[in-house]
Design a protein around this nucleic acid. Structure first.
Length: 866
RNA sequence: GCCCGGGUGGCGAAAUUGGUAGACGCAGCGGACUUAAAAUCCGCCGAUCAUUGCGAUCGUGCCGGUUCAAGUCCGGCCCCGGGCACCA
């Protein structure tokens, strides 16, 4: 056996072995328990980053572990290939998005193979291929026929200089990223899918999804935001006509405190009032600038202007002024709100700013209300009761809502209503690099979906890009001109493309039958689905995961799948972060330096004192740890690490350094430590291969030291099993390290060798999912078997764990005062007596009365004395 | 602004979920091997005080509470991160 560990050789040999033996190719086998393990597929941005490596290592570890438990495991891989960055790259490199994307895929696929991930590559798919997006085009037309798809106006970021729609990401401080022009909000017709029809099911199902992290379920619940409220109207007269201003509120109990109403800048009432009010018209104009992102809307300065129109309070008959507020969202609810400054914080500040009346109508206990400053209790609906509210005085929230809703209903001016925060899914994008929306506009027939036999509507890939970022297919009449599928007359194609979330919402299902030619999915889908274990970044907790859940239900209702939910178990991994270094430039900007190009100086405790750039020896500022990104230039290239240490080291390091759901901080020294551990495993095998090789196990009488070593090995095995089950892989690795440390202490006797061999074969199997190459090699080299990949999981020997005496902690009043050894079968009284007899314990209870003695089995004794 | 997380030694973390805080590793220090260095192996390693030794006090972001016992549970704050519907 070779003395030194040579990862490059071992890894290419193992990878070749898996490829030649089709080790990861799987098919449906009704006799075996299936396990579908899936990692979120990557966007082919150029090369793998550390976040990918971490994500896919977790997935591969789960895959190989489940396989050793005897399951029929599917682990596929593919490419989320449509998206905005390809268009940016097209402009920058003068290269068509398709070409750029395909070359990235080719390179990144090679990287994935080098990391030893066990994918069934026969199932690989790329979402930009027509035979993939054909099926989401088809499903969309089916949904249209079912009435689940509709078209309506919706607001986008418009760059007035480049004459193009911008993504929220492309709006920086309210300006277009390329042109620098102030962004405008513009309404255009777009396609929507009725996700709100499924809101209740999407919400209720969350209660049964116990294998999803609670935080993700909470985020989705809040996002759906089911609320119980009242929709009601303020009557008013306009140009002699009776009109109604409708609002929705969850706090109708405060209705007697209304002092004004606020409408959005797009509201018909606002538009009408602006017709002969130049100042208001200018304000509405001003409200049209800025991004459409909710975070921007919510943090901007709250501004308003009176419309001059008053409406009638539905219960009191008082006149209520209507204002335009830039903070009122036109897309949510009615685009208009009632305002109760006394009991809503946002209304309170708005009223203070514009000198509007504040009417106190909810009281909690004997607290005193003042209009000087906002206090939390003003909005307390749990403990509040109505005051200054005529007949509703003294009612609590629930009773007030019932009484007021009944009165509004009697007048025909309102009723209780359930509402969702969730909005319908807008799937139109005014971009080129996406799946064309399969709709045709015909002057005679209106909108006509493209029939199945004419699908896919293929996106032309050989296109020229201009610098404004406008979509080429919007300027290609030879593509957009077509004939109407209904009447055969001249018609035009829809030139918008789908949101890329459309592709990522069903790829997991297509992997089960990627070659299905006649249908979106075939019967194989129901063998594999739902996905048993889904792994991906926490940043996808809401949007991607909610759309995928929705899409699954759409496919179910189209008869394509039989399950209700797509992902049984979810693991959300944390970010990969690293130290940042920069220098301030004269123009106020910062230049960021890669950690690899910086040397640090540390004090004796290892704290970083200062840092210098390697190339010029001049100081740089230490900027703290942040998410690895291009903008901070703190990315560590996984390829460099694989080239230097091998895939096993990189995999082991990413698993060992942090639990999967926490952020992982990159450290060069840490990687060396991981590499050191693998070399330690290798050296142990190389040094003692003659003594520990061969299949089968031996038995021998063990002395106390050997028994203790064996106990440590089996305790670590038990812990590793427990930790694999709960996906805490960092402690799996530390269990392996403990075993190896114990093995290093064993000597040369026959009994030592028996323990050593058993322990070594155990640690190789514990490590196999994490470091598959080196364990594959050693397993064969030592003659333990052919395929560690298919070796069954080792079981802990409970008899090895039994101890004759157990160490108890003796506490006095909760403080540790002694450690005592007690026979394992000692009675409670004996344990108490042993603790009380200890000299140091005696010192602390001397002169006091023992009130109580608590014994926690196998752990501690606490003596309460005073 | 709203929703969801997280804060434990010099550093990454552990504590099987209310029962010995700091397992395992990194860095550091000391020793062995070596002509030497690297590599490797062995040992020490929260702070303060005390010390020949035993030990004592403090310590899990901050303030308060519940409990025989709190990193863990409850209430209030501070800081950091993720998401906010056209980044993926």
């Amino acid at each position: 056996m070779q003395e030194t560990y040579n990862p490059a050789e071992i890894e290419s040999e193992a990878q070749q072995h898996w490829q030649e033996n089709n080790s990861f190719k799987v098919s449906e086998d009704p006799d075996r328990e299936k396990y579908y393990c899936l990692s979120m597929f990557p966007y082919p941005s150029g090369k793998l980053h550390m976040g990918h490596v971490r994500n896919y290592t977790i997935g591969d570890v789960v895959t190989r572990y489940q396989r050793m438990l005897g399951k029929n495991v599917l682990q596929p891989m593919g490419w989320d290939a449509f998206g905005l960055p390809a268009e940016g790259a097209a402009i920058k490199n003068n290269m068509a998005p398709a070409k750029w994307t395909y070359s990235n895929i080719e390179y990144m696929e090679g990287q994935l193979r080098q990391l030893g991930f066990g994918y069934d590559w026969d199932r690989e798919l790329a979402t930009c291929k027509p035979d993939y997006y054909k099926w989401e085009q088809w499903l969309f037309t089916e949904l249209y026929k079912k009435g689940l798809v509709y078209r309506k106006n919706s607001v986008v970021n418009w760059d007035p200089v480049d004459q193009t729609v911008l993504a929220n990401e492309q709006v920086i401080d309210g300006r277009g990223w390329r042109s620098g022009a102030l962004v405008e909000r513009r309404e255009i017709p777009q396609w929507f899918i009725k996700i709100t029809d499924y809101a209740d099911e999407l919400l209720e199902e969350l209660d049964n999804m116990g294998d999803w992290p609670e935080q993700v379920r909470t985020m989705q619940r809040n996002w759906i935001g089911k609320s119980y409220g009242v929709r009601f109207a303020f009557p008013y007269e306009l140009d002699g006509k009776a009109e109604q201003l409708w609002v929705y509120t969850t706090r109708v109990d405060t209705i007697m405190g209304i002092t004004f109403c606020a409408v959005s800048a797009e509201h018909p009432l606002a538009l009408h009032a602006a017709q002969d009010n130049a100042e208001l018209a200018a304000f509405l104009e001003e409200c049209q600038s800025g991004s459409v992102a909710e975070a921007d809307l919510a943090t901007m300065e709250k501004k308003g202007m009176p419309t001059g129109i008053s409406v009638t309070h539905p219960l009191t008959g008082e006149q209520v002024p209507v204002w335009v507020g830039n903070y009122v969202l036109s897309g949510y609810g009615e685009g208009a709100v009632m305002a109760v400054p006394a009991h809503d914080e946002r209304d309170f500040h708005f009223a203070k700013a514009y000198g509007l009346e504040i009417k106190h109508v909810i009281q909690v206990g004997d607290k005193s209300f003042s209009t000087d400053a906002w206090e939390e209790w003003y909005a307390d609906k749990e403990n509040g009761v109505c005051v200054n509210s005529d007949k509703y005085n003294g009612l609590n929230y629930a009773d007030a809502v019932d009484a007021i809703a009944a009165d509004l209903s009697a007048k025909g001016l309102g009723e209780k209503q359930v509402q969702y925060r969730l909005r319908d899914w807008g799937v139109s994008r005014q971009r080129y690099w996406g799946a064309p929306i399969p709709m045709v506009h015909c002057d005679k027939c209106g909108i006509v979906p493209v029939p199945k036999e004419d699908l896919p509507v293929v996106l032309p890939e050989d296109v020229e890009f201009d610098a404004t970022g406008g979509s080429p297919i919007k300027k290609m009449p030879e593509w957009s001109n077509t004939s109407c599928p209904a009447c055969g007359g001249p018609a035009e194609r829809e030139t918008d493309t789908f949101d890329t979330f459309m592709e990522s919402s069903w790829y997991y299902a297509r992997y089960t039958c990627p070659d299905a030619g006649d249908d979106m999915l075939d019967e194989r889908a129901n063998y594999w689905l739902p996905v048993d274990h889904y792994i991906g970044g926490i940043e996808h907790a809401i949007l991607h995961l909610l759309y995928a859940r929705f899409y699954h239900k759409l496919m179910r209702d189209a008869g394509l799948v039989s399950s209700d939910e797509p992902f049984t178990k979810l693991l959300t991994q944390g970010m990969v972060i690293a130290e940042t270094y920069y220098r301030d430039e004269a123009d106020g900007s910062k230049t960021w330096f890669n950690p690899a190009d910086v040397d640090t100086e540390q004090d004796t405790k290892g704290r970083v004192l200062s840092a210098k750039l390697k190339s010029d020896g001049q100081p740089v500022v230490v900027g703290g740890t942040e998410k690895m990104s291009k903008s901070k230039n703190n990315g560590v290239d996984p390829q460099d690490m694989v080239d230097l240490f091998g895939a096993d080291t990189v995999r082991l390091y990413t698993m060992f350094t942090a639990p999967p759901d926490q952020s992982l901080e990159w450290s060069d020294e840490g990687v060396e430590g991981a590499n050191r551990f693998i070399r330690r495993v290798w050296s142990l095998a190389a040094n003692r291969s003659g003594e520990i090789s061969g299949a089968g196990s031996d038995t021998c009488n063990l002395d106390d030291t050997q028994k203790e070593a064996r106990r440590e090995i089996h305790a670590a095995l038990k812990q590793a099993r427990f930790d694999y089950e709960r996906q805490q892989f960092n402690t799996v690795v530390s269990a392996c390290m403990k075993v190896v440390n114990a093995l290093y202490k064993l000597g040369d006797s026959a009994a030592d060798k028996v323990v050593l061999k058993e322990g070594f074969s155990i640690v190789l199997r514990l490590l196999a999912p994490i470091a598959p190459h080196v364990t594959h090699k050693l397993w064969r080299e030592l003659g333990y078997g052919d395929e560690i990949l298919d070796t069954s999981w080792p079981e802990a020997d409970e008899s090895a764990l039994v101890q004759e005496s157990i160490q108890y902690v003796a506490q006095v009043n909760g403080k540790v005062r002694a450690k005592i050894n007690v026979p394992a079968d000692a009675a409670r009284e004996a344990i108490e007596q042993a603790a009380l007899a200890d000299a140091n314990v005696q010192k602390f209870i001397d002169g006091k009365t023992v009130r109580k003695v608590i014994v926690v089995p196998n752990k501690l004794v606490n003596i309460v004395a005073n």
